[in-house]
Structure formats: C-alpha cells, structure tokens
Design a protein around this nucleic acid. Structure first.
Lengths: 277, 277
DNA sequence: TGTGAGGTTCCAAATATTGAAACCAAGTTT
DNA sequence: AAACTTGGTTTCAATATTTGGAACCTCACA
C-alpha cells in the first residue's frame, strides 16, 4: 500500500464532479491530511482547492481539526451512507441469507457490489467473531483478482465491462494474480459458462474463494456473494462443494431484490405508496 | 413519520452546498424516489434539479434504477463513509471501552456525535443481540430529547450552542419532552454542573438513559456515550449508579482521542509520517 | 388521434468558479 | 533583529458554469 495521494484527472460533471474528486482525494489518504499535502497531490491550484475544502467542510462532508489543521471525511457522509446502505444496497435483503449461509458453511461470507470499478463489500459474516461494523462494510478491494469482483464483471454488459476493465490496475498481488486484461477476459468467459467464479490465491496467498453473481431475472447484475476459505484448512474440492448452495442463495437474493424493487409485475396496481404518505 | 420531502432552503456554499442539499433531499425520503416527487418538494426548478441528479448519479453519489426510474443514495457514499467512520469518528477509539461498558452493565450502550444539530449514532452495543450494522451506525436522532444529545450540547461553546439550538424542532415525543429552548437551556445548565445528562422518557416512553460527554483536555466536545435502560426493568436509582463508571469511560475515550489526535504534546518531534511515504 | 404527465434538452442571461498574485501569520535562518 | 521560508487565506478581473423558462420529446392512456 503506497501513498494515498495521486489525483485522478478524470472527473467531468463540472463543479460536482470536482467536489467528489476532492472528497475521494481526502479519503484516499487514510488519515487526516494537511492542506499542503492535498495540494501537492492535487491537480487543482491552491485557491481552488482551498475553497473546495472550505465548502465541503461547511457542509459536513469533510471535518476539519483546527488543532492539527487537518481534513478528514466528515460525519455527514456517515449519515448519508446509512441511507444508501439501507436503500440501495443488497444488504438488507441479503441479510437472512448470509446468516444462513454463514451458519451452514462455517466460513467467511461476503456480499459485494461494484462501485467505480472496485469491489465494495456491503456486508460480511465472519466465521468466528461477530460482525465488524464499517471496518468491513464500506471497505473496497480490487475487482480483477477477487471472486466477487470477477463474478460481477463476468455478468456485466459489454460497455459497462469495458469501462470497468479500463479501471483495473492489474497489480500482481501473488504469483497467481491475473495481470492482463486478456487473461482476465478469458477467465470471465469461463465464469460466464460455469456460473460462478473462483479466486485461487489471486489476491492473498492461502486464501481461496468461490463466488456467484446476484442477478435479476432480466440478467441485470446487482452484486455477488462469496464463500472464502484458507488453503490450510481446506482445498478447492471441499470449497466447490458449496457452489450449488451458493448459487441458490444468490438466486434467492436476486429474486428477493427483484420482488422488492419491482413489485409491479402486474402492469395495473400502482405501488407508489410503500410506507410513505 | 410523515413525508420525507420538504426542501431545506438553507444551503450557501454555491454549487457544492446545493448538491449536498439534493443529496439530503433524496436521502430524506426513506425509499427510492422519482424525479417528479423530488421536484415537488424541491426549491430548484425542473432543469436544475434534473442536472444535479444527473451529475450526482454519474458520480455514484446517487444510484438510479432505470427500471423504476428512481433515485436513491449511492454506493460511493458507503465507501466514503467507511473512511469517515474510520478516521474522524470516535468509534475506532471507543470500541474497546464500549465493549467493556456493555459487558459490565448488560445494558444498551451508545456512542454518538453531533452532526448538523442532530445526534448521529456512530456505534452501539445492544444488550442481547450482537451489533447491527449500518442499521444503527449512521442513524440519526433528535438532540434536544436524548441523553447523548443533551450531554453534547451542554458542553458546546456559546456560538456553536446557539447554532445547534436553532436547529432543534422541539417536537413533543412524550409528555416529558422538553419543548422550549428555555427549558432545554435550563437542563443544559444542570447537566454542565452535574457532568452528566439524563433522558427521563423524553424521547420514548419507558426508555430512560444517562449520558456523559466525551471531551478533550481543553474541553473540546467530541461526542457522548450513554447507557440506556427501560423503566420496566429498572428505575433511575439503579441507572444512576453507573454514572461514575460512565464518566470514567468517557474520560478515557477523551484521553485516547486526545493522544491519537494530538501526538505532538512535545513541540519538537515531527509526526508527519504515520504510515504514508 | 388527442391529451397529459413525466422527463429531457436548448440557449442566452446571470452567476459562480477560477487561479495568478498579493497578502498574512509563524516559524527559521542568517 | 531583519530577511527568508513555509503554509495558509484573500483579492479581483477574466472566464467558464450554472441557471431556468420554454420548447420538446415519449409514452401511456382515453
């Protein structure tokens, strides 16, 4: 893990895009940062960056520590994220299924979604200890070398896939990591055929995993779930025994999500009232 | 719980402030919303709102469901919130203390911070069941009628307090709710003297709680912790027996936070490298 | 085919953003 | 103590963006 700095020149979307860039930029340092540190790794000129930080701080999107003169992501984000997690993540729907899967397998279970080319873990069950909060949910990881990442990419539409592929870094984590777009594309093809992905120590040595995509009935990719094991305690044969179960759970979650998100299978029946009014 | 709409005319901070307003506005509906629903409750004209939604969606701050044509808070917020929670909340520091407190008391324990006049719960221990994830952290509540809220307000500086007081709604939740600024100010005075706050069924009938502020040594208010009980199982006498313990934990958290946030008690000793570089 | 509601796009006027440079405050060096 | 740094904040005119009324789609429905 190197420096958190580095500015993403990509933005667009005018002021809003730039503001989001700044937000990411601050978050990328995994600690409170000084203005000058941000400036060094930013594309924005001094005054501009300064004003962005001001505005974002005013808005509570960043928090400023006057004693240390540092900026960090602000608490307003936590509040907003709560809404995001509740409303537009699969977590609330998937929760009972993850519980069951975790109980049955006794292994670590992940639920992930795709966010700007990265895997975003939205929920997790850890074999031994109870849930760790945000320390897990909200965490991001690479897509090209994780089970959930590949499972999701494999079921992306053409243009979305290209976009995501272009966002991968292909850093070699282990000697099994796929480090070229072509190698990855080949694997995605296999995954598409088999219906599930494997991570054979591609991200961390000793860590293997199987993953299935969560799809709607019209094949829109919503996320993925995975069961992870360590090579010390098990081999792929044992892990793959869970594939049918995993797949079924993924389908159930997909169906639930579908039902929840599109209650109007029947074109009559207005469903504009859910809990409001 | 009424309609989630209602536009906050307050914003400032130019485009960034407006964008944040839109974000809040979407989050306020506690469900995915249609464009027109937002428009109805928004101060922005059609075209303007439309472009904000577009940009925010592009940026992943909102997510758009093309099938239902609805907007909801986006996953990028979850990623950013993870950073916020890790870096600028008290939760990572307070965790072991909350664990201990929860174990000892056997009651529900909260850790909260203040966010734009509201109580934001950043962590929680529930007596019986294990931690519920975002469903708790990130949740907000009123400040004027909760233990943690009052404990925090009581130790705010003059101007900050005025700002926060002006943001309270003074809705009467129970017949014990303090519903005027003056009544609240009086209570805050008492709290300041005693060093802890009580919530005597002011928010929910049957729910009582004690709360202590978390302060730095130079009296900057960082947050508050509380122990909650129900009148069915205990009375105030029993609950208040925990005050000394609660206060000590609050002090410990404050001290830890202090140490963590201001490692340079000694003016020499540059600590600019923590993990970066 | 007509009508209306919900969304999307145009375009000139109004406004906010921009960033070089000046400025200020502290701390360092000579 | 004066002259330099370094880090942060403010100014101000040029410029790019945002703005929002209105026109325009598109699709469901009468």
């Amino acid at each position: 893990m190197e420096n958190g700095g580095e500015c993403k020149p990509v933005s667009g979307d005018g002021t809003i895009g730039k503001a989001c860039d700044v937000l990411d930029h601050v978050a990328a340092f995994q600690r409170p940062v000084r203005f000058s540190e941000l400036l060094d790794s930013s594309a924005f000129p001094k005054a501009t960056l300064y004003r962005f930080l001001q505005s974002l701080t005013n808005q509570g999107m960043l928090s400023y520590d006057p004693d240390r003169q540092t900026y960090a992501p602000g608490m307003r984000l936590v509040r907003l994220a709560h809404a995001a997690w509740t409303q537009s993540s699969l977590a609330p729907i998937a929760r009972p299924f993850l519980d069951a899967l975790s109980r049955e397998t006794g292994e670590t279970v992940h639920l992930a979604q795709l966010d700007s080319g990265q895997v975003l873990y939205v929920d997790k069950r850890n074999a031994a200890q109870p849930i760790e909060m945000y320390s897990q949910a909200g965490k991001v990881g690479p897509a090209y070398c994780t089970g959930v990442g590949k499972a999701m990419m494999a079921f992306l539409g053409e243009e979305a896939l290209n976009r995501v592929l272009s966002q991968q870094s292909y850093h070699r984590f282990t000697d099994k990591t796929l480090t070229s777009e072509q190698a990855l594309r080949d694997d995605l093809e296999r995954i598409r055929n088999r219906g599930f992905a494997v991570d054979d120590e591609e991200h961390e040595p000793g860590i293997i995993c199987i993953a299935c995509p969560v799809l709607t009935s019209n094949s829109r990719m919503l996320g993925a779930i995975s069961v992870t094991g360590s090579t010390e305690r098990m081999d792929f044969k044992q892990l793959e025994a869970w594939v049918p179960r995993l797949r079924r759970v993924a389908e159930q979650i997909g169906a639930e999500a579908q039902a929840w998100r599109f209650p109007e299978t029947d074109p009559n029946h207005s469903n504009d009232r859910m809990q409001a009014t």
